[in-house]
């Protein structure tokens, strides 16, 4: 084995991580090679030197500083509105939700693609519930074929809501109410100009919800309203995090 090979294994050898056979090869080489032996002795001395470095004691002021910072953070917590604390609690988990969202989007895309490809090259069976949900709405409501029971386990709430416009509207209205409550809390700190813009847009979007036809158009209008409210609340939180206002 070459000196380079041996020196590459020295760290593992010195730390006792090589098995008996490889350890013996390294030891045999070191007995005969002066250069490698010196490198090994340097590294062993360095390792021992690092292991025996003195323990460092922190200054007594460290604990006092930690306590003071914790107290300051708790006072700041008490002054923060509830919705900001909620956002702060959820923010660290956002990447995981985003990853979950991406995975779900990918799965839906695959199912959609398979459902649409099916008639052409896959004459087989019933499309999945998700594919059915995403497929263009038929002129008349889809009615299950007589004698065919719905597939077991397809308790898809979204599908259920799609076929029950009233329940869908109630759910959307509840979500919008919660977001309006959050936005109202944040609104107190907005400029007059921003308040006017927000109020105008909100009234406009709410009017759209009332005026469009029931069913999908109304659900779309609700979603637009909810997206706007989410944007308003999140923008405020981002501005706060960046120290800008």
């Amino acid at each position: 084995m070459s000196c380079t090979e041996i020196q590459r294994r020295l760290t593992a050898y010195l730390d006792g991580e090589l098995d008996a056979d490889r350890g013996s090869v390294v030891r045999g080489h070191l007995r005969e090679c002066e250069a490698c032996r010196l490198v090994a002795r340097d590294e062993a001395a360095l390792r021992d030197g690092l292991r025996t470095l003195p323990t460092l004691d922190p200054p007594p002021s460290l604990w006092a500083g930690v306590q003071a910072q914790l107290a300051a953070a708790e006072v700041a917590d008490a002054k923060r509105p509830a919705w900001r604390r909620a956002v702060a609690r959820w923010a660290p988990r956002a990447p995981r939700f985003a990853a979950g969202g991406l995975a779900a989007a990918a799965a839906i895309t695959v199912l959609w693609w398979r459902a649409h490809r099916a008639p052409a090259d896959d004459p087989s069976p019933s499309p999945s519930p998700v594919a059915t949900l995403l497929a263009p709405v038929p002129a008349t409501p889809a009615v299950p074929a007589r004698g065919v029971t719905p597939a077991a386990g397809t308790d898809d709430v979204t599908a259920d809501l799609t076929h029950d416009p009233e329940r869908a509207s109630t759910s959307y209205a509840q979500a919008a109410d919660e977001l309006v409550a959050l936005a109202t809390e944040a609104r107190a700190q907005w400029s007059d100009e921003r308040k006017v813009a927000f109020d105008t847009k909100l009234v406009e979007l709410r009017a759209t919800v009332d005026h469009v036809a029931e069913g999908r158009p109304r659900q779309r209008a609700w979603r637009e309203l909810i997206r706007y409210l989410q944007g308003a609340v999140i923008r405020d939180e981002i501005a706060l995090a960046g120290g800008a206002r």
Binding site: L14, G23, R51
Partner: peptide, 12 residues
């Protein structure tokens, strides 16, 4: 003359 292999030991 050979540096001996040793296992890492937690320090105190």
């Amino acid at each position: 003359i050979l540096p001996s292999p040793t296992l890492a030991e937690p320090r105190g």
